[in-house]
């Protein structure tokens, strides 16, 4: 069994850790800060090409069932959303849109935009109604907090029973462990309960929490809140890393590294002038005129040193990898697929 250091706590880092741990590797994952996976809609928009089976297995959990196939749903402003895999209450089967939808809003809270949503629904041929709940939540307060008590859910169910639509569109507010509340609500009010497809909210957090639990369950040691500040590289081999957390710094030894630090945010690729740059000062970065596509260069799946040498035990995965084909909305599926390829390359090395 060998030790693998995975850097990055988003979808690519967690999926590659899980794949490696399942194969008996001793994996330590280091990462801090909210990854962009948490800021996503929590739905997988495009069908991943190479890792469909592994991904479906990876995303299994006891709290939240998934719907897979051509799916359609509505955003919090009522725009249509299409995807390939989504939590069961986010979407309907493509082509089976509800005839009428009640948009549920909470006074003073931006979680759902009722006027825009209603007019966009009408434009899509869906009859729209509007229901304002008689509770006030300050705009900065996450709705999850306001819907923690049984009382607020009873009030919601009661209000929904008065609507005459086929379906109700709720703001996203249930955390992973409470996803079952949406099933209960559907039974209580007798309407199809839809959760608005929402970035920067509970759906993305649920997805990361689920992946985190799966990786930990497979035996991955997760060093949250910590950061790799330097890599110890000799020739073409990563031998260790310097990790800092709180007021402590530790040196760890490793037999291989997976770098999955995501896009150019603080702990990811640096932005130097108008170009991307490697924060470790070791690896080649392939530039692109499209900011979305630039990232770490690779040769036969392995990372490349700035001097052109191919690394023997370092691979990159996810958004930090150069990808000519990356497109808007392909992020999660692409990251997962890239993680699987990175693990394969490491195994072949």
């Amino acid at each position: 069994m060998s030790r693998v250091l995975v850097i990055g706590n988003g979808a690519a880092g967690l999926f590659s850790s899980w794949l490696l741990a399942r194969k008996g590797q001793e994996v330590v994952l280091v990462g801090r800060g909210t990854p962009s996976t948490s800021m996503s809609t929590g739905c997988i928009r495009t069908r991943p090409e190479g890792c469909e089976r592994e991904m479906a297995e990876f995303l299994v959990n006891e709290h939240m069932p998934w719907a897979v196939g051509a799916r359609a749903g509505l955003s919090k402003i009522g725009t249509p959303f299409r995807c390939w895999m989504a939590p069961s209450h986010s979407t309907w089967k493509y082509g089976e849109a509800p005839g009428s939808v009640t948009v549920v809003s909470i006074e003073g809270h931006p979680a759902i935009h009722v006027r825009i949503a209603s007019s966009l629904l009408i434009a899509q041929g869906i009859r729209a109604e509007h229901l304002s709940l008689p509770i006030a939540v300050p705009p900065e307060v996450p709705l999850t907090a306001a819907f923690r008590s049984e009382g607020s859910w009873e009030l919601l169910a009661k209000a929904l029973r008065t609507t005459s639509s086929d379906a109700v569109l709720l703001p996203a507010m249930v955390p992973l462990r409470e996803y079952g509340r949406l099933d209960a609500l559907e039974r209580q009010c007798g309407r199809k309960v839809l959760e608005a497809v929402t970035p920067l909210g509970p759906p993305g957090l649920r997805l990361t929490e689920l992946m985190h639990a799966r990786a930990a369950g497979a035996g991955v040691t997760i060093w949250d809140g910590r950061r790799v500040t330097a890599l110890d590289i000799k020739g073409d081999t990563v031998r260790g890393a310097t990790v800092s957390g709180g007021s402590e710094v530790k040196e760890v030894a490793t037999d291989a590294a997976v770098i999955a630090t995501g896009g150019p945010l603080v702990d990811g690729l640096n932005i130097k002038g108008r170009e991307l740059d490697d924060p470790f000062g070791v690896f080649q970065v392939a530039r692109s005129t499209d900011a979305l596509r630039g990232g770490y260069a690779s040769r036969e799946g392995m990372m490349v040193r700035v001097d052109g040498r191919r690394m023997a035990n370092a691979v990159a995965a996810g958004d930090c990898v150069y990808s000519e084909r990356r497109d808007h909305g392909s992020g999660l599926a692409g990251a997962l697929d890239s993680a699987r390829m990175a693990v394969m390359a490491l195994e072949g090395a």
Binding site: G33, T34, M39, P142, T144, A145, A146, R148, L200
Partner: peptide, 14 residues
Amino acid sequence: CGSCTRACPVLNDP
């Protein structure tokens, strides 16, 4: 992005 507001124990308390 609002990640801080979602993590805050005070803001998330009734």
